[in-house]
Amino acid sequence: MSETPKPSFSLPMTGTDSVQPDHCAQDPVHSNHGHGQLQTEILMQAILCGCLGLVGVFLYWGKKVEIILATKFHLWLLAGSITLVILAFLRIISVWRLTTAGKAMDAGCCNHGDHHHAHQNCDHPDHNHNDHAHETPGCGDHGAGCDHGHSHAYEPVKAVVLMIPVGLFLLNLPNTSFAAVQALDLNQVEISSNVADRGTENNVSFLQLERAAQREEARQLYEGKTVALVGQFGGNDEKKFTLIRFKMNCCAADAVPLKGAMFVDPKAPAKIDHKVWNKKWVKVRGQVQFIKMKDGTFITALVLRPKDDKDLNGDWIQETIPDSIYLQN
């Protein structure tokens, strides 16, 4: 009976965890459990849930969700966030309702009304609450941070960690898509000068060309055609740069950079104004080529054939606003 349980493998409970171990000796029927404190803790838990839910709703509302999640998850986030807000609201209402109805103890985070510590039947001289059976699921989840076997506390450590997403939202972070992306190393890459012009092809996306690069037949289908691609400018050369666009499936964590090599025709006198374009969203027009890299893979390349600098930095490369930051499957 008096054996002290081993602590569980969990973060230590802090702050208000330590419900007085001798409280039940003073009042075996739990009346001195600290109802005011308990209600505050439940309130804090509910507020934390509500805050996270509200942040989710505002992310959707302010369209910032586009930076972090694929379109198919936008409604999921909205639904989940609204549910969380409603859950928090119902939690507060139910606790308030039960408290005012005189059932405060039943409204605890682990529903003390549903299980028995059987205090009436023992005098507590040589054991703590852990020796009592918690017959209700929900109790004991809190680890062994207190003599009770579980905590009623909202746990400041948890609260601080869970407030990180809320704090980031208030700081307007994150506010851009990926920033630290390396451009392709194009120093030893050369374009072919004898690819025949096969006319203009509209509505070809970065994703289509990326896929086409993997297959011989698809490469033959697109090579020589003039297309326009949208992406972010990367590089600091006057004759070549990398066009970068991210492909996303579910969220930014699984986003994969697609990189296209952009070359100005070596015969053309025009130079790229890379200081102006760097990191900007641009629409680039050029003739498709697929270049074999050292590792055997093929990358998509566009060859730009401008008349002069003005033609290059205004017609072949144009600043643009993309329909969406990421390309999605």
């Binding site: 992310l59 998850f73 989940g80 969380l84 997403p165 972070l173 994150p174 851009t176 969220c251 964590a253």
Partner: peptide, 12 residues
């Protein structure tokens, strides 16, 4: 960006 995306994708 990566942290936020992992968190909000799993949240719902």
């Amino acid at each position: 960006l990566i942290f936020t995306s992992i968190f909000y994708e799993a949240l719902p």
